[in-house]
Design a protein around this nucleic acid. Structure first.
Lengths: 339, 339
DNA sequence: ATGAAAGCGCTAACAC
DNA sequence: GTGTTAGCGCTTTCAT
């Protein structure tokens, strides 16, 4: 079966390729009659135009890139869902790239986005990313970039995020209300906007409440593989028996807190109250059910994609640069913070 | 900043575009000296070749498509991880398409894979898919296709799956051993190979054990949104108080069984023992911890991608058609089946 | 209303 | 070892 191009189609129909091309795009300069014939034949032979020939000619790819740290994470997979929903509607294709929290990989991946491979980029930065030159370069090549969730604060670009500071504040407030005397914020990388803002909110609540916070380390960083996180959490809780409340800044950390509690006979919520930033579906059926600050993950993805497409369509990227969409998270109290 | 093509590069270097092109691919017919100069300049200007021009010319896209029902599911996101791992290594790009369990969407998506958009397709079919003409057409256009997890049984194509029948058998066996007198298999769509095979294994275990199975419906189909599944499960358990054990054929179902048990004061494992086909990370910290049959999701994705790439590289698709890789699942006993 | 032809950026024969 | 050129499949001006 020789490949089916517009040329074969044209020959089959006894028309020129130009006419066929125009007919396929429903151009007004083609007679209704001809259009009908062309469409019918295209349908019959299941003609699908070569996307790359078209991309090359039109200098647009009908493709966007989504760069994220990880896909095996509820938040990110829900966000992908939201992104896909709008991409499909816009007739766009979605390339997925994973940075695995590595700055080097992220840079390499961003490099794939040049030269017309994609018309725009959605990115949630890695926890190692502390400068944004690679992303700026993308912008300077006129490739629109939108951050979602994990933004790079000092870079001018549209951002779709959640109310991290307020949520951090709320999480501490809740622990204090429930009687915690020594709550701790478990960060995953303070260079990450989401972590530093959540931590800042957390800190503000402590000081607002007049909690003694000198010589008391209430923000602890925790990174690495699941096993490494487990060890760090275990260590922390063993060395600091005074800790009676903990906020997990990301989902992965919550899991390990529970694992440590299981292994170390630490009772949640009696000995330790737990709040987690998380979109875990299983939060209500955990042992005990987990109090979460749930981000609107699908909506964040969807909204970020929408902003990206308006940039792609308007071709006026600068005009959107100060767009910041904030979609609030929801605190859902469950048993892990019960008194 | 005007766009950077091989032409500009060549002019900048005072060389022909052919020489530059060859130098970039490290062709042996170019002097080391020239190569060095070209590479240096390319590096300096951050030249990235236009992928679509290259694709058009070489008739290969360096891109694969992954078509799956859903991304917000542990199994699939882990599988994507595995796929990505090998794609990156092969310098390939990954397009993700979601069928949302819809046959119509799946067909539409498959249609995007023609005309050179991708060099190969990895697919896990939707629960509605009961014929594979769309996929056969792909094969007849010489686009290699590999199934992972959810295969289409009667289609000749490489498949990477888990030992569904044996696992189904094991799950029933376990429930019976734990004293269940009336275990039930909760399917999500018997047209899905994974469900029908798991159900068949389940049934075989019942009959091997000599359990009375006439006028006893031990396989129940359960589909729709989370809410619909919840209602169906609730209904089932209310109408059939005799059910004392249940196997969830997919992760989504397990969640709802737990939700029903919570809402209806059904005690797991006392009143009802539960086994789930699932890669849920949170299985050990559920209330009660969940006995799972855990599929090697990452490895399935990885292996499927590997098979696909050997097909892409060998260009001998037919030779692989009878490849079936079976990666066994692991039964992990936890409290949801405790006596 | 239809067609001829140029050219998007690249690769690969084929000269030289 | 380097350069010239045709052409991948498509879109789009410009003729007719």
């Amino acid at each position: 079966m020789s490949k089916l191009t517009i040329k074969t189609l044209a020959k089959e129909l006894g028309l020129s390729i130009a006419t066929v091309s125009k007919a396929l795009k429903d151009s007004h300069e083609i007679s209704t009659e001809t259009k009908k014939k062309v469409l019918a034949m295209a349908e019959q032979l299941n003609y699908v135009p070569n996307p790359y020939a078209s991309s090359l000619r039109k200098q647009k790819s009908k493709t966007i890139a989504v760069i994220l740290p990880e896909v095996a994470d509820n938040f990110f997979s829900l966000a992908i869902n939201g992104i896909q929903a709008v991409a499909v509607q816009k007739n766009y294709h979605v390339l997925i790239y994973l940075s695995h929290e590595s700055f080097e990989i992220e840079k390499a991946v961003v490099n794939h986005c040049y030269s017309g491979r994609v018309d725009g980029v959605l990115i949630s930065i890695s926890s190692e990313t502390t400068n944004a030159e690679h992303i700026q370069k993308l912008q300077s090549e006129n490739i629109p970039v939108v951050f979602f969730d994990r933004e790079f604060e000092s870079l001018e670009a549209p951002k779709v995020i959640t109310n991290d500071y307020e949520s951090g504040y709320l999480s501490a407030k809740l622990l204090l209300e429930k009687g915690c005397k020594h709550p701790v914020f478990l960060s995953t990388s303070l260079s990450l906007s989401i972590c530093s803002k959540r931590a800042a909110g957390f800190a503000a609540a402590l000081s607002d409440t007049g909690l003694q916070t000198n010589n008391y380390q209430y923000v602890v960083d925790c990174t690495g593989t699941q096993e490494m996180i487990f060890d760090q959490v275990k260590d922390l809780l063993q060395k600091h028996k005074e800790i009676d409340g903990i906020v997990a800044s990301v989902e992965r950390l919550a899991m390990q807190i529970y694992m440590v509690s299981l292994s170390g006979h630490i009772n949640i919520p009696k000995d330790l109250k737990v709040v987690a930033f998380s979109t875990l579906e299983t939060a209500p059926i955990l042992n005990p059910s987990l109090t979460t600050i749930t981000q609107p993950a699908f909506e964040i993805g969807k909204s970020a994609a929408e902003v990206l497409f308006t940039m792609i369509e308007k071709k006026k990227h600068s005009i959107m640069a100060d767009t910041t969409v904030i979609l609030p998270s929801t605190l859902i109290e469950r048993d892990s913070t019960a008194v």
